[in-house]
Design a protein around this nucleic acid. Structure first.
Length: 635
DNA sequence: TACAATGACACA
DNA sequence: TACGTGTGTCATTGTA
């Protein structure tokens, strides 16, 4: 399906539709519809037989249908799929739009992806920017591109499924789940998370004092700042700023403390009367800056907060967000999330997800036995750590993150002895990463190959001594069948280290800590080993979460229809719907009378996701679920 | 003045 | 020896 390029507010959607076979081959001539909303809704009316809509990008195409009151059951998102397929051949951060995919297919210059625009500043919706004087294709030409690229993507998915070196029999599942994720993200943005401004105000006022005028600091914060200054010998108004790490560091050193940073964990070790005030100031200051009244003004409209998710925005397949920090909302702010009258929130999170994923992907029978229980760490402790749950947790987290410090060596030895398959799984992934290899999630999502910079450092060509680690060839990056000439672009790595090289490297754990700047060969190798070690788990957990969301979305829609309460296939009716998602946690907004069924759907979806992603496994993925009026009341 | 880097901390 | 993964956003600080 393609749309004619009209204004988003235009109530009449027109565009082109063509029916394809399962192989992506046209089964009918293309047809123009001057009322796409109605056409699509009619095709969707028999949900059991709903088509899988193929379109350029859900992110821009689907909101137009949603605004017209039309929900779709399934889609194939060309852009999201292109990302997954490019990743399979080691190409990250390359343009993934329909236009770009089509250009690669035809061997033409590849246009950059359009810059994502905030919903409020959207004008023309067509994501094809004219470049080099070429004209923007019309909707019918777009349809031809769409059909060609879609067929090619199906072919590449099949190729990946039979790749002997990096088999991904489930890649089609991943593509379907990723596409469904796009639908979920668009629907969450459309519905919005119920957000009560008065409750948000109450939290802020309680902690910070009344809302100040303009940009002034709230009263409590300003007062606290003065007290902090006084505690370190500064008179009020004498220019001490607790928000300045430099000044705080200077004040503390002047008071005789030798510290390297003003991080909270380091400050807590200091015995000084000003520290407690300073820590309180930092906490409140952050709350005010990140999620205070300015944030509320910018992001809460008509009782709804609308997160802008970036599906698959993290290389591991986790979602990212744009602009409003939806994934970093402080827990205390959950008090502002209150269901509408007559509605409830179903809150569910998958506890201990990552160790359970490790148990499932590694097939370790001992760990799987522990993961069949409700508290994996307690079961692990009982089996191998003399009942010491804290030790068991520390050990397993250390194994998944690659930690070796802090005296956990002996704990890791226990794991290695008692759960050899699980430990071998993560250690194999780490060794592959250290050698420059690529690892994959359960459903076949590929991690980025090492950057040229990493290769230089590890091979000792970067002016740092210590080159003793062999780097694998490019065998991992391009499966033989995939490496056709159209994909021979060398400039594939600009993205991979964008953050890694920008931050301060391994020294003192600054910033993200995954950089290679200033690293010696061995450090860089082990750093990448930790990344790939974690990738196989985090990305497989993301696989599971994506499928969970996709299944849940379908079941919630069935719930609305079956009950006869909601309009079912429509939008904005009274069917339960997803309103929030954070890695391993979902929030569903539901009419009260459907709350129990919605909660049941959440639980059953998790189990279906388990079967789809991990097949036959004794591992369970128990959910903590709660039906509440306020998000903060869940656990 | 505008932009980039830094340090810190929120989330999973 | 020591080495915990992945993000986004803010205020401050440094540079062009």
């Amino acid at each position: 399906m393609t749309f004619d390029p009209v204004e988003p507010a235009d109530p009449v959607l027109s565009g082109w539709i063509q029916v394809l076979t399962d192989d992506g081959v046209p089964a009918e001539p293309p047809q123009c519809s001057t009322d796409l909303a109605t056409t699509v809704a009619e095709r969707e009316s028999d949900r059991a037989d709903a088509p899988r809509w193929v379109w350029a990008t859900t992110e821009t195409d689907y909101p137009r249908l949603l605004r017209a009151g039309v929900r779709v059951e399934r889609c194939h998102d060309i852009a999201l799929t292109e990302s997954l397929l490019l990743a399979r051949v080691g190409r990250f951060g390359e343009p993934r739009s329909l236009a770009a995919a089509w250009a690669r297919l035809r061997g033409l210059p590849v246009p950059q992806d359009p810059r994502p625009v905030a919903p409020q500043e959207q004008t023309a919706l067509f994501g094809i920017e004219a470049s080099g004087g070429s004209s923007v294709p019309d909707a019918q030409q777009q349809l031809e591109m769409l059909v060609a690229v879609h067929a090619d993507q199906l072919r590449r998915i099949a190729v990946a499924a039979s790749d002997p070196r990096a088999s991904a029999p489930s890649l089609a599942t991943l593509v379907a789940a990723e596409s469904a994720g796009g639908l979920v993200a668009a629907e969450i943005a459309a519905f919005g998370l119920p957000w009560r401004v008065d409750a948000h105000d109450a939290v802020l006022t309680d902690l910070l004092g009344p809302r100040p005028f303009g940009d002034a600091l709230p009263a409590k914060l300003a007062e606290l700042g003065v007290h902090v200054g006084e505690a370190f010998g500064y008179a009020p108004g004498r220019g001490f700023n607790p928000d300045s790490p430099t000044q705080v560091l200077r004040a503390l050193r002047h008071a005789g403390f030798s510290i390297n940073s003003t991080r909270a964990w380091e400050l807590r070790a200091i015995d000084h009367p000003g520290i407690e005030l300073l820590l309180e100031y930092k906490e409140l200051s952050r709350l005010h800056a990140a999620h205070g009244w300015a944030w509320q003004d910018a992001w809460v409209k008509d009782g709804r907060y609308r997160p802008e998710y970036v599906v698959g925005g993290v290389v591991s397949g986790r979602w990212a967000t744009r602009n409003s920090g939806a994934l970093q909302i402080p827990r205390i702010m959950r008090r502002a999330v209150i269901a509408d009258d007559g509605w409830s929130l179903v809150v569910a999170d998958a506890g201990q997800l990552e160790p359970r994923v490790l148990a499932a992907v590694s097939g370790d029978t001992g760990l799987a036995r522990a993961a069949a229980s409700g508290d994996l760490y307690a079961a692990l402790a009982a089996e191998a750590f003399d009942g010491d749950r804290a030790a068991a947790k520390l050990a397993l987290l250390g194994a998944m993150y690659g930690q070796t410090s802090g005296g956990i060596g002996p704990l890791l030895s226990v794991l290695r002895k008692r759960f050899p398959a699980a430990m071998a799984y993560v250690e194999d992934a780490a060794r592959t990463g250290e050698r420059g290899g690529v690892v994959y999630s359960r459903l076949g999502r590929a991690c980025p190959p090492p950057s040229p910079r990493w290769r230089r450092i590890v091979s000792g060509l970067d002016g740092v001594a210590g080159a003793d680690i062999a780097v694998e060839g490019d065998a991992d990056m391009d499966s033989a069948a995939e490496a056709d000439a159209a994909f021979a672009d060398v400039n594939a790595y600009a993205y991979t280290d964008a953050r890694a090289d920008a931050d301060g490297g391994a020294g003192a754990g600054s910033g993200g800590g995954s950089g290679y700047s200033g690293m010696r060969s061995g450090q860089a190798a082990r750093s990448r080993g930790r990344f790939t070690r974690n990738f196989v788990i985090q990305a497989s957990a993301a696989d599971w979460a994506s499928v969970w969301l996709a299944v849940l979305r379908r079941r919630l829609a069935e719930l609305g229809g079956v009950d006869g309460v909601g309009r079912g296939s429509g939008v904005g009716g009274v069917a339960p719907h997803l309103v929030f998602f954070v890695h391993d946690e979902v929030v569903v907004h539901t009419p009260k009378q459907l709350a129990d069924q919605a909660a049941q759907a959440v639980i059953e979806s998790a189990d279906e996701a388990r079967r789809v992603v991990f097949g036959r496994t004794p591992v369970r993925f128990p959910l903590a679920t709660a039906v509440v009026d306020c998000y903060a009341d869940a656990k």
